[in-house]
Computed example of a mutant assay.
Amino acid sequence: MDMISDARRVAQHEVERAAANAAGGEYLTFRLGAEEYGIDILRVQEIRSYETPTRIANAPSFIKGVVNLRGVIVPIVDLRLKLACEKADCNDFTVVIVLNIRGRVVGAVVDSVSDVLELAPEAVKPAPEMNSVVDTSFITGIGSVGDRMLILMDIEALMSSADMGLIDAH
């Protein structure tokens, strides 16, 4: 019995180590309410100040509308609404992170952008498992930098989820 539990513990450790190694890298960090998130810097095209988008009829509440970005019509997703933050007020710090996801340009509204951090693989822990009511499929891990905790997000998985309707699943 002990050999089986030891084997499970070793296997779990290997899975966690592989996940952590895959999750190391450079992240753009931003705030949504009191939480700080990180996304792969390679997905970020630019950061812009918030401008009121043109509303699209019958779009979900988290899709604020579209903006014209140098001739490209870009859908704007308010991540604060999508991730059920308590407040989604716009102020001088509110920005749009322009993302390139599978060749499609999408804007994500966030409360503020913090910085770009390089996380060593050992600074990334696996995301905690939650019950099926909580969708954590887009959370790749939790990063620790000093006393800061970052929720690391697979922005491609979030933006290409079926309820977004923005990007075809491949």
Rank of each mutant, 00 (worst) to 15 (best):
R43I: 00
R31A: 10
T52R: 13
E14P: 05
G38N: 10
Q45N: 11
E35W: 11
S61P: 09
I39R: 05
V44G: 03
G38F: 07
T29R: 03
L42N: 11
L28T: 00
H13G: 05
G65V: 08
F62M: 01
V67T: 06
R31N: 15
I39K: 08
V72H: 15
V66N: 01
L28W: 02
G24T: 09
A18I: 15
R70V: 05
R17N: 13
L32Y: 04
I39S: 03
P60I: 10
G33Q: 10
E26T: 02
L69M: 13
G25S: 12
I39Y: 05
Q45V: 00
G24S: 10
E36V: 13
E36A: 13
S49P: 06
A59S: 12
S49W: 07
G38A: 08
E16F: 15
L28N: 08
A59M: 08
G65W: 02
V77P: 03
V74N: 04
E35S: 15
R31V: 06
T52Y: 10
E35F: 11
G71L: 10
T29L: 01
T29H: 06
P60W: 02
I41A: 10
E14N: 15
K64N: 10
R55V: 08
H13R: 14
I39A: 06
I73W: 04
G71E: 07
I47M: 13
